[in-house]
């Protein structure tokens, strides 16, 4: 029904930050594609749109939505879907992705990716919403696994089975965030390698890496926060190696959204991603 997975190249990409525009245009180093947050490019014009047009002439672009609330209990916001359709329409990006999460309730947008119970009812609702998105956009979308800080007593599905069932029902692809896997596994007390081994790997159209912060819960157990504010942690790089063994080379994104560093620091992370990809391609 839709194009397979995504047309992003199996190279390192970075989350685009406007302060890096000039350096990226001059020499992007190992970076072969860029990801933008859809909602930041929904204004009428000005610098954001002009920069995006210029970047899109040089790089494949991945549009990553953070505001659709695909897991919301109520129907998807038709205005927001229309804005996405407009953006995807003029930009023709290589990929569109969103999150297994919710962020809007009662018309209030909470600006965070909030968690879902994995039940039959949630599955049906999320599948319906993915169908609607793919219908409106006329393309296959990728759905990203969340980072979890807690679990729902009512859940009856494992996250990996839940995602596999969504792929089966909707034909969507998946965005596998390896840092999210590490964060969730640490926070909820399971083995991250086991999660990767159970993941519906054929559906993976893109991989994310990002940095996390360390905290503790009420019992002194580690509580990792998916902050995207620093370098990717070493155990996450190790988990990436394990993941790439299963997936082979895939589009591999470095996310750095808070305390954004100077371009050379981000480019170094992309270089490390490039080496990981080269090892698995060899």
């Amino acid at each position: 029904m839709f194009d397979h997975n995504s047309s992003l190249p199996p190279l390192p990409g970075v989350g685009y930050k406007p302060q890096h525009f000039a350096q990226i245009m001059e020499d992007a180093g190992p970076v072969g594609w860029l990801e933008i947050h859809a909602e930041n490019y929904m204004g009428d014009g000005g610098r954001p749109i002009a920069q995006l047009r210029a970047l899109a002439e040089r790089f494949p672009i991945s549009v990553h939505g953070v505001g659709l609330s695909i897991g919301g209990e109520t129907r998807l916001d038709p205005d927001h879907l229309a804005r996405l359709k407009h953006l995807v329409g003029w930009l023709s990006p290589a990929s569109f992705s969103e999150h297994l999460a919710w962020s809007t309730h009662d018309a209030h947008f909470l600006n965070d990716l909030l968690p879902l119970p994995y039940t039959d009812a949630t599955l049906q609702r999320v599948a319906d919403h993915i169908d609607e998105v793919q219908e409106v956009l006329g393309r296959r979308m990728l759905l990203e696994n969340p980072s979890s800080y807690l679990a729902f007593a009512e859940s009856t599905w494992s996250e990996t089975d839940f995602l596999a069932e969504l792929v089966k029902r909707t034909g969507c692809g998946l965005l596998l965030d390896v840092n999210n896997v590490f964060v969730s596994a640490t926070n909820l007390g399971y083995a991250p390698q086991g999660y990767i081994d159970a993941f519906p790997i054929d559906a993976v159209g893109e991989i994310h890496l990002g940095g996390h912060d360390e905290d503790e819960d009420d019992h002194g157990l580690p509580l990792l926060i998916d902050s995207h504010g620093r370098e990717v942690a070493d155990p996450v790089w190790a988990l990436l190696e394990h993941t790439l063994q299963r997936t082979g080379p895939r589009p591999l994104l470095i996310e750095w959204d808070t305390d954004v560093p100077e371009w050379p620091v981000l480019a170094d992370e992309a270089r490390r991603a490039d080496k990981a990809l080269a090892r698995v391609a060899a």
Binding site: D112, Y149, L150, E154, N187, D215, D218, I225
Partner: peptide, 21 residues
């Protein structure tokens, strides 16, 4: 209905979302 993954109440794990928002 929110737990820490071992069945104990989520407690300050929920506060991560409060703080993020």
């Amino acid at each position: 209905g929110l737990t820490d993954g071992k069945g104990r109440p989520a407690g300050r794990r929920y506060a991560v979302y409060r703080n993020n928002v």
